[in-house]
């Protein structure tokens, strides 16, 4: 294999979910396709890398700061939803159930991996609270790390005059109870609602 190809394979292999074999297959595909496709891909990649940045307000990826969501006058500025990563934000957006603003932490607390509060997008969250925010919704994963991050944020938010809530966990919509794991069923039961 030529030096140039080896470099391409090595770079592709760094992508998430791509191993040695897939990296080879992708590079062969790129090099046997019409060269226009490869050029187009390279241009798109370069442009995206140069123009897309985390929004200085919420941390969402965007070409502008503030991003489209933060700048949208129709969004409810009294609700702030805290998520771990950009894909979580996208998932909530896709549900069309939330009309407030977001705050992306870019991870969760995990001292064992060297991630403390300083490594996350946490301090900017507090500077956003002076305005119209009435409620902070913590939409973090139900893992030990997500749990401690939520506890930490609640700890630091409690004296700031905002309501702090946590999204519910339980039975998936359209799911069958029979196939739901024990932990989720336990939480769904303890978090039941009167009707």
């Amino acid at each position: 294999m030529s030096e140039v190809m080896r470099r391409l394979v090595a770079l592709l292999r760094r992508l998430p979910g791509v191993g040695e074999k897939t990296a080879h297959r992708l590079s062969i595909f790129l090099l046997t396709s019409p060269p226009e496709y490869g050029r187009e891909l390279a241009r798109a990649l370069q442009e995206a890398v140069e123009r897309v940045r985390p929004c200085a307000v919420c941390g969402n990826l965007s070409e502008s700061t503030p991003c489209e969501l933060c700048a949208d006058p129709r969004r409810d500025r009294s609700l702030l939803c805290v998520v771990e990563r950009v894909p979580d934000l996208m998932a909530i957006e896709a549900s069309h159930e939330f009309g407030g603003l977001y705050h992306v932490l870019h991870g969760v607390l995990d001292p064992l991996k060297g991630v403390g509060p300083a490594e996350l997008n946490i301090e900017p969250l507090f500077s956003r609270l002076s305005g119209e925010v009435r409620e902070v919704i913590l939409a973090l994963s139900a893992s030990v790390e997500g749990e401690t991050t939520a506890l930490y944020l609640r700890q630091r938010l409690q004296d700031r005059g905002v309501r702090v809530s946590r999204i519910a966990s339980g039975i998936p919509v359209g799911g069958e109870l029979e196939y739901v794991d024990r932990g989720t069923i336990g939480r769904a039961l303890s978090g039941r609602r009167e009707m």
Binding site: L109, D110, P111, L112, G116, P117, T148, T149, L151, Y152, Q155, R156
Partner: peptide, 21 residues
């Protein structure tokens, strides 16, 4: 393990952080 790591690596650990663990 997280609490131990915080204790070991930070000179003056943040109260809120320790509290959550």
């Amino acid at each position: 393990l997280s609490r131990n790591r915080i204790i070991k690596t930070q000179g003056v650990p943040e109260d809120d952080l320790l509290k959550s663990y």
